[in-house]
Amino acid sequence: MHPLWPRVEACVPQLWRAVCGYELNPALREELLQEILLATWEALPRLRDPERLLPFVLRIAHNLGASHVRSAIRRPAVLPFEEAVHGHVEPGTGDEPASERSDWLFEAMARLPLNLRQPLMLQLEGFDYEEIAGLLGISAENVGVRVHRGRAQLKAMLREEGADES
C-alpha cells in the first residue's frame, strides 16, 4: 500500500460529489467510484507533491468521469420518480433532507455539456480559475467563460422548471 493511500479517505467527499456530477444512477455511481479508486491506487506513485493530493485525485475523477459520460448514451436515462422513496422535491425551502436538497443540482448538472460542467463542478469544490485551468488543461480565461455559460444555463433550466426564486 502506498503511504499516501490513507490520506485519500479525506478526499472521499470531493470524490463522491465528482462522481455524482457525472452520473445519476446509484448503481453506476458505485461503478464509477470503484474505477476512480482503483486508478488512484495505481497512480499514487506518480504523485510528486503530497500536498497536491486532492487536485491529483480530482483530476483522475474528472478524466474518468468524462470518459464515463462520453461512452454513455446521449441523453441521461430518465429514472421513474418514486414519490415514496424521494418525496416531493422543492429546492430552497430548507425543510427537506440534505440529499433531496442536492438532487436538483445534480439533475440539472447532468444536462450540461461536459465542457461547461467540469469547470463549474471544480468551482463549487472551491478551486479558483487558475487551479481549474491547471486541472483541465485550458486557460484561466476559458475557465471563466465556461463557468459563466454553465451558470447561465443552470439558471435558465431552473427558471424553466419554475424552481428559481425569481
Binding site: W16, R17, C20, P91, G92, A98, S99, R101, S102, D103, W104, L105, F106, L124, E125, R151, L154, K155, L158, D164, E165
Partner: peptide, 12 residues
Amino acid sequence: LDERMLTAWRGQ
C-alpha cells in the same frame, strides 16, 4: 443561486 448551488453541492 450561488448559495443554493453551494448548499446543494456540499449536501451530497
